Amino acid sequence: MSPRWEPNPDIRRGRTVVYNLHAHLVFVTKYRRGAMDDEMLTRCEEIMRKVCEDFSATLTEFNGEADHVHLLVHYPPKIALSVLVNSLKGVSARRLRTEFTARVNQAAMHGHFWSPSYFAGSVGGPPLQVVKEYIEQQKRPD
């Protein structure tokens, strides 16, 4: 006998929480310098995947171009997204600068690999308007 519903693999459970949190992150290289090639992007993905694992998060998707990267991260609610981002950027910058010293022009980037800013957007689930309408339709007790 098959179950009435199929469990959603994106919905995770903790001891006191059920969650499905995804963030789309974009990191840009300092001064948008075209610092990365395919080999560096591949290594960057490996580094960021390991950092996510250390935070009990999952790097669901990764890609980029010479001057920026896109990440889709599935993360637990106990992790502040800003802390995860700081670790992703810090660890990857340090390792990429060390491993690809000849390709990363330190002087042109003033010792930094990533721009200090980043984009973070929440993704997944129903559209905002649907959630608003659902909440509005809740029946208050008299």
Rank of each mutant, 00 (worst) to 15 (best):
L81T: 09
M36H: 11
L71A: 02
T98I: 05
F62R: 10
V17H: 12
A23G: 10
V17R: 11
A57K: 01
I135F: 00
A66T: 15
P141V: 14
Y134I: 08
P116Q: 05
A35P: 05
E53K: 00
D10S: 12
A102V: 04
H68I: 05
G14M: 06
N86R: 13
R4F: 07
N63E: 09
V104D: 04
A93M: 05
E136N: 10
K139M: 11
Y19A: 02
R49G: 10
R12T: 03
V17A: 06
Y118D: 09
L88R: 03
R95L: 15
G124F: 01
R103M: 09
A57T: 07
G125S: 07
L25M: 09
V73G: 09
K139G: 10
N8R: 14
V91Q: 06
G121E: 03
V17N: 14
Y19I: 00
T60V: 15
H22Y: 15
C44M: 15
D54V: 01
D38V: 10
W114N: 11
D67Q: 07
S92E: 00
W114H: 08
V17C: 13
A107W: 14
S87G: 11
A35N: 11
S87E: 13
N63H: 14
L21F: 11
D54I: 04
A102R: 13
V17P: 00
L21G: 02
M1R: 06
M48N: 03
F55R: 07
I47A: 04
F27T: 01
A107Q: 14
S82P: 01
D37G: 14
L81D: 02
N8G: 09
Y75M: 07
R140S: 13
C44K: 07
V104R: 02
S92P: 02
L88V: 08
E6W: 05
T42W: 12
S115N: 15
R32M: 01
W114P: 13
A120Y: 01
M1L: 08
R12F: 00
R140Y: 06
E53A: 11
R13G: 07
E46R: 12
F55N: 04
L96Y: 05
S87L: 01
F113V: 05
H110R: 12
K132P: 04
E45L: 03
H110C: 12
E6I: 15
E6C: 10
V104L: 15
T60P: 00
A120E: 06
D54Y: 05
Y31A: 01
N8E: 08
V85A: 04
R95H: 02
E45F: 06
T101R: 15
G64T: 07
M1F: 10
D38N: 12
T58F: 06
L25K: 08
L71W: 04
H22W: 02
N8H: 09
R13M: 09
F100R: 08
A120F: 12
G64K: 13
S92T: 01
W114F: 08
V83F: 02
V85S: 03
G90T: 10
E99W: 09
K139W: 03
F62G: 04
T29F: 10
D38Y: 03
L71T: 02
H22C: 01
Q106Y: 14
D10L: 12
V130P: 06
W5N: 11
L88W: 10
C52F: 04
W114R: 08
P9F: 11
S82V: 10
L81R: 01
A120W: 05
M109F: 11
Q106G: 02
L84V: 08
F27H: 04
R94S: 11
S122G: 11
P127R: 00
R103T: 12
L25C: 05
M48G: 04
M109P: 11
